[in-house]
């Protein structure tokens, strides 16, 4: 079977999984259903000849499911109630998104068919990587050698995100303990 058939199967599975994750009442089931989507992305990366990304995506999926479950499991678990849905907003959003989807079909027809590379700038990297950087993994040599400046910016963004999370977590718990000391 060609790669494309497999990919259509996997992406269709991911569509079902994402709809299930968003529409399920129970939140634990929803978190586990989004795991389907992430592992599907990992398998799709493997079929698209990107083993680096498959490894990282697989680990990312495990990590995020574990921390989401651990963060939200002990809270008083609620399922989404019936009354709190805004049916008008939901209907309008669905109609608009379906319209966007139908109108964008022409746009996607203008793209070259699947399997023809859209970007051709990478030929330089493929031809000169082994002689210039002496690294066998071309993706790694692009990330850390040719485009190392990008990676420095990415490290900064990761640092900022983690610092933001730490600040949000720690800021008020300190104030809370002070307040308990006063009262």
């Amino acid at each position: 079977m060609p790669v494309e058939t497999w990919l259509i199967f996997i992406v269709g599975f991911m569509l079902i999984g994402s709809i299930a994750a968003l529409e399920m009442k129970d939140l634990l089931s929803a978190i586990i259903a989004v795991g389907i989507v992430g592992l599907g992305v990992s398998m799709a990366f493997l079929l698209l000849q990107a083993p680096d990304l498959a490894i990282v995506q697989f680990l990312f999926e495990i990590f995020s499911v574990v921390i989401i479950v651990r963060a939200f499991l002990k809270k008083d678990y609620h399922s989404e109630g019936e009354g709190q849905r805004n049916r008008l907003l939901g209907g309008i959003t669905v109609l608009t998104l379906i319209a966007v989807f139908l109108l964008s079909i022409r746009l996607f027809k203008a793209l070259p068919p699947f399997g023809k590379p859209l970007m051709t700038t990478a030929r330089y990297y493929l031809e000169n990587c082994a002689s210039q950087t002496h690294a066998a993994n071309i993706v790694s040599s692009i990330v850390l050698d040719y485009r190392g400046y990008d990676t420095l910016g990415e490290v900064t963004v990761l640092f900022t995100a983690i610092l933001g999370a730490l600040t949000i977590i720690r800021l008020k718990s300190k104030r809370k303990t002070e307040g308990e000391g006063q009262s």
Binding site: D52, L53, V56, F60, M119, A122, Y125, L126
Partner: peptide
């Protein structure tokens, strides 16, 4: 296959985790 988008997505996934 084209290695450049793979390099971009590799960093994007980790940022998504943060």
């Amino acid at each position: 296959v084209d290695p450049l988008p793979q390099a971009l997505v590799l960093t994007s996934i980790v940022i998504e985790l943060g």
